[in-house]
Simulated assay, not measured.
Amino acid sequence: MTLSPSTGSGETDPGGLSDDALLARYAEGDPSAARLLLDRLAPRVLRLAYRLLQDQAEAEDVTQEAMLRLWQIAPDWQPGGAKPSTWLHRVAANLATDRLRKRRGVALDSIPEPDDPSPGAAEGMIEADRRIALDTALGQLPDRQRVAVVLRHLEGLTNPEIGAAMGIGVEAVESLTARGKRRLAQLLAGRRDELGYER
């Protein structure tokens, strides 16, 4: 995945600066600012895209596209408004949602299972089953509920940050996450024993 923007020369050390400041430094041609911003933001965008798409290659494509869009708007960025990370979450969620809508006819069984990096075989199998069950259940939520639940409960964003990322109010975020959690509970009901959860 090639996410590095092309920049001018003139290396500096912009460590410790805010995302806004780094984006401004990138717009002025500082490649080290671009690398730091990429290191800070791309992993979070990739995680979000993967959670929504459940496909590593597509998640990487979405991350690359979101970062490219950030590089393109850098010269016009207005500090003090939305944070670059919030803006990227919004762009990535929209790009992922567009991809999901295009592949609506794809059966859940055809989506590959995520890799299991855990060392213990039994624990790894249980954790993989739990992850697959959650990802499958998330895939059955309406798009906006899925985005809100993933951003809140898997990415740890606050309701105001989610509202900014989705372009909706905090009350709408609360409603979407509450409905999404209720629906997930319904979809996963009766599977506690199967997934290795104690009562």
Rank of each mutant, 00 (worst) to 15 (best):
G15F: 02
Q72D: 15
L134W: 07
E155S: 05
G169A: 04
S32N: 08
P14S: 03
A122N: 11
D115E: 10
P14Q: 01
P142W: 00
L68P: 06
L68V: 10
L154M: 09
D193E: 15
D13G: 09
P114S: 08
A137W: 10
D116I: 02
L3R: 03
M125H: 14
L52S: 08
P75L: 01
I132P: 06
R182H: 13
G8R: 04
L184G: 10
E60I: 00
Y197A: 10
V150A: 02
L95D: 04
R25D: 15
D115R: 03
E161A: 12
L38G: 08
L157N: 01
P43V: 00
D55M: 03
Y26C: 08
D98V: 07
R104C: 13
R192Q: 15
R51T: 06
L48I: 04
V149N: 04
L38C: 06
A178T: 14
R90P: 07
L48C: 09
E155D: 13
S118A: 10
V91Q: 08
S110Q: 14
A33I: 05
A27R: 01
E58P: 06
R35W: 03
K181T: 15
Q64P: 07
Y197S: 07
H89W: 11
P117W: 00
V149E: 04
Y50E: 14
L176A: 07
L184W: 07
L100F: 11
Y197K: 01
A107L: 15
